[in-house]
Computed example of a mutant assay.
Amino acid sequence: MTPLTEVDGRRLALSNLHKVLHPVTGTTKGEVLHYYATVGAAILPHLRDRPVSFLRYPDGPDGQLFFTKNPPPGTPSWVTTTPVPRSEDPGARQVVIQDLASLMWASNLVVEFHTPQWRTSSPAVADRLVLDLDPGPPATVVECCRVALHLRERLAADGLEAFAKTSGSKGLHLLVPVVPTPSAQVSAYARQLAVEAEAALPKLVVHRMAKALRPGKVFVDHSQNAAAKTTATPYTLRARARPAVSAPVTWEEVEDGAHHAATPEALVLLMDDITPRLERYGDLLAPLFEPERAGRLP
């Protein structure tokens, strides 16, 4: 029998709670659901009012993975959906996770949460800029930390404040709050930053995706600022053998990673790390929601 629970007055059927989703640690689906219930207050502000794309991995990272933007079959009527601009489907809609019940319903599907840089009230008008720092082996997150520090200073020179989080995979993401700006303009500025970073650090940075260019360097991916693109939402679990989380880090941790880290594992944050970090720091990305922190692009 599928267990039923009630969240904020909504009845939810939670399935396969003992299924192992992250094989290295033996993390079960029930533990994943407990994680999202526990960090709901932290992740919901980053999901709210943004259309969500799901990377589903119902049988764990070694099973079938599929990316979906459309509301999954069986989406309850009380889960919010919103129209989204898609040239190939003018009637397209996507889920918006507005509350804890919707978060737990979506988490039961076993998903990574991915969101764009704009809100449903202003499609293709971004309120943040993102740079995805992706290391090409043998480069690691250590090299990403060095590039992040360079980009932080470069952004500050333009009056913009950067915040860092792990990607939940091998690299880092930099998030920058901006006053609402057309996504095309943000994309052009982000590309300029990547090109400049490659010119300043030619042995460390590449701004193009071609794999032949990337060994030993950090790819500064600026493309996720395009209106149609998404980025892993802060605090989402990733489809990995261990329950890695895309989670915010302090700049002190980035500096340590760049200069003193003995191992790239120093900046791998797992599910069980997050609650203690929230108790210690609160949400390090909360300034993204403070209007006075938003900068204007030059």
Results as ranks from 00 to 15, higher is better:
206 V>H: 10
40 G>A: 15
94 Q>Y: 11
193 L>K: 12
241 A>R: 15
186 V>G: 12
279 E>H: 14
256 D>N: 08
88 E>P: 00
289 F>G: 03
15 S>K: 15
31 E>T: 07
223 S>E: 12
242 R>C: 08
274 I>L: 06
241 A>P: 05
200 A>T: 02
157 A>I: 00
224 Q>F: 03
242 R>S: 14
242 R>F: 04
108 N>Q: 04
53 S>P: 00
226 A>E: 08
145 C>D: 01
250 T>R: 06
231 T>N: 03
86 R>D: 00
251 W>H: 01
275 T>I: 12
33 L>E: 04
81 T>C: 02
231 T>Y: 07
71 P>Q: 03
67 F>A: 05
288 L>K: 00
217 K>R: 15
214 R>L: 03
188 A>C: 05
43 I>Q: 05
283 D>Q: 01
225 N>I: 09
64 Q>N: 00
173 H>M: 06
19 K>T: 07
201 L>K: 04
163 F>K: 00
241 A>Y: 13
272 D>Y: 01
164 A>H: 08
253 E>M: 09
59 D>T: 14
7 V>S: 04
23 P>T: 04
180 P>Q: 09
282 G>R: 10
72 P>A: 10
115 T>W: 05
28 T>C: 03
7 V>T: 04
294 A>H: 13
140 T>H: 05
217 K>E: 01
53 S>T: 11
22 H>W: 12
131 L>G: 07
100 L>W: 02
236 T>N: 12
29 K>D: 07
298 P>L: 06
203 K>E: 15
105 W>S: 04
117 Q>I: 14
246 S>A: 15
35 Y>M: 13
208 R>C: 04
57 Y>E: 07
150 H>I: 00
69 K>A: 00
2 T>M: 10
40 G>E: 09
47 L>M: 13
280 R>H: 13
35 Y>H: 13
77 S>Y: 03
24 V>R: 14
80 T>M: 11
151 L>E: 02
127 D>H: 14
102 S>E: 08
37 A>R: 15
234 P>C: 11
281 Y>Q: 13
175 L>R: 02
267 L>A: 09
45 P>S: 14
121 S>D: 12
